[in-house]
Write a protein that binds this DNA or RNA. Structure first.
Length: 506
RNA sequence: GGGCCCGUAGCUCAGCCGGUAGAGCAGCGGCCUUUUAAGCCGUUGGUCGCAGGUUCGAUUCCUGCCGGGCUCACCA
């Protein structure tokens, strides 16, 4: 237990004084009639009427025998006016023992102050929860309609570790997560309207698959076996297409045991959708329709600003084959070059190419370095090299390519899709190639999944599949520079080692 | 993993080339019954991230560690 500093000590003393007044500092409930927003939006109708509001004290201006303070509820803040003559001696004593951060309920009359602020004139004041820790104090002032914030609570480490404080003190943070929720709801509604079925598939998997990534490993005691946290939903969802569902989707957490940065959190949310009898061209249309619809519903516009760049999500989006995109941005015509010449060309661009890299890896490198960052407006990069895509169908016009696309927006991929490979013999081949890569030390190569192959052998219809990174999409639609700004509790190292709290596994 | 930067009061920060710390807000006490970054007067509060080293003396210099940020690498 950390020792109490002066401020926390004082609050505990106040708590005892409140108890001594015969007041329960943690009563069971409060009957609220209005939120702050409802009062502000309906002032004319509510003026001089009695309301009951509740929230956290966020500012306090005391003037002898009267005081103004703001309380904050889910929808905003409203000012409260307390006057000793009005609330009485005892309640005013209670008021004097309150702190910023305490949760209170007020019953009183709606009025407007001399300076024009809609407020509640307290007739009754009730403590609903005493706060024992001091909040950061953020003050703000409006000048010419612009909000100036003084001493913002800005330490990123504290904000991420104590998100509850961040949410209390920084209202725009709450907005981001409200939008995140609306994005997911809008997407779910879109998919439901199309008639697709939302399903749930295992997170704990005996064999992981569906992406190239290193997994987290866990252990089931009763079964005495290793399990993996899923890296993708893909293989289970395709089993369901085999099973006869013709459109299934899942919003799910995936887990990848890799580095962390501005665009990667070890656990992240993905929406995966599989639709029978369709191909990747069809899926491109669905994707642009879905993303633009979500933006329209959540933001009221298909035009967004991301980190200062204006982006127009209105369909149709540009479709650009991968190799053409490389030609466009670097002049390199990959198809005219043999392996050695391609390596030379890449090195001339300044890339460091390892000797054991194949063509696909070099192409991917050139794309990632010279093309992707330049694709600000939404673009479907289509038709990837076969070797990079063990789960997608070979291109109908070119056996060295697959029918795959990635939607790129603001220089970053936000998803991945293909005409799903449903030829079980070809799929087995591709798995075998992956196993060879794995034998050569590629820890991210995919693992053969015999049960998935068995499902394909029963026959899976032609299918289009799509994955959309919900975190990345949310970054885009909330103009957030880091994935940690759109995840409520981003992964952090433990604050300190507290031996006494270590969990004792058997 | 590499590079750069940061860690000082509850919060936001200052502290030059070494002499064991300061501001604003918050808090506490006083005045103030329509204030709003309320105001005025007074005042408390710090193992200067942790551990070593150099030194008569370290918040300051050096090393290591811990935590974080940015970035590069890796990575769908």
């Amino acid at each position: 237990m950390e020792s109490l500093n002066q401020l926390m000590q004082q609050r505990r003393e106040k708590l005892e004084k409140i108890r001594a007044l015969g007041i329960n500092p943690y009563p069971p409930k409060f009957d609220r009639t209005h939120t702050s927003r409802q009062i502000k939006d309906n002032f004319e109708a509510l003026e001089e009427k009695e309301v009951a509001v509740a929230g956290r004290i966020m500012s306090n201006r005391r003037m002898g025998k009267a005081a103004f303070f703001h309380i904050q509820d889910m929808e905003g803040r409203i000012q409260i006016y307390v006057k000793k003559d009005e609330v009485g001696e005892k309640t005013f004593e209670l008021y004097k023992l309150l702190d910023i951060g305490d949760i209170v309920g007020i019953r009183g009359l709606v009025f407007k102050t001399r300076t024009g602020e809609i407020s509640v004139f307290a007739k009754e004041l009730q403590l609903l929860a005493k706060s024992l820790r001091p909040l950061p104090i953020v003050k703000e002032k409006e000048v010419d309609g612009k909000k100036i914030v003084y001493d913002p609570f800005s330490d990123k480490e504290l904000r991420y570790r104590q998100r509850y404080v961040d949410l209390i003190v920084n209202p725009e943070v709450k907005e981001v997560f409200i939008k995140r929720s609306k994005i997911i709801t809008a997407m779910r509604n879109f998919l439901n309207q199309k008639g697709y079925l939302e399903v749930e598939t295992p997170i704990l998997q005996p064999i992981y698959g569906g992406a190239s990534a290193r997994p987290f490993v866990t252990y089931h005691n009763a079964l005495d076996m290793k399990l993996y946290l899923r890296i993708a939903n893909e293989l289970y969802l395709k089993r369901l297409i085999t099973g006869g569902f013709e459109g299934v989707y899942e919003f799910g957490k995936d887990f990848r045991n890799e580095g962390m940065d501005r665009f990667h959190n070890p656990e992240f949310t993905q929406m995966e959708l599989y639709v029978a009898y369709q191909d990747y061209y069809w899926m491109m249309e669905l994707t642009e329709e879905m993303i633009s619809t979500v933006a329209q519903e959540v933001l009221g516009s298909m035009k967004i600003i991301y980190q200062g760049q204006e982006i127009d999500l209105t369909p149709p989006w540009r479709r650009l084959p991968l190799l053409e995109s490389i030609k466009e941005f670097t002049g390199i015509e990959v198809d005219n070059l043999d392996d050695a010449a391609l390596k030379d060309a890449a090195e001339k661009l300044g890339l460091v190419i390892e000797d054991n890299w194949g063509r696909a890896k070099i192409i991917d490198e050139i794309f990632g370095e010279f093309v992707e960052p330049k694709l600000v407006q939404p673009t479907f990069i289509i038709d990837y090299p076969l070797e990079m895509s063990p789960l997608s169908k070979i291109h109908r016009n070119n056996p060295r390519l697959v029918e795959r696309f990635e939607p790129i927006i603001a220089g970053k991929e936000i998803g991945n899709a293909y005409s799903e490979l449903n030829d079980p013999l070809d799929q087995r081949e591709r798995f075998m190639q992956q196993m060879q890569l794995r034998a050569k030390g590629d820890e991210e190569a995919q693992v053969i999944d015999e049960d998935f192959l068995r499902a394909l052998e029963y026959g899976m219809p032609p299918t289009a599949g799509l994955g959309i990174g919900i975190d990345r999409l949310t970054m885009l639609l909330t103009d957030s520079p880091s994935i940690r700004d759109v995840i409520l509790f981003p992964h952090m190292r433990p604050e300190k080692r507290e031996e006494e709290h270590e969990i004792d596994w058997e």
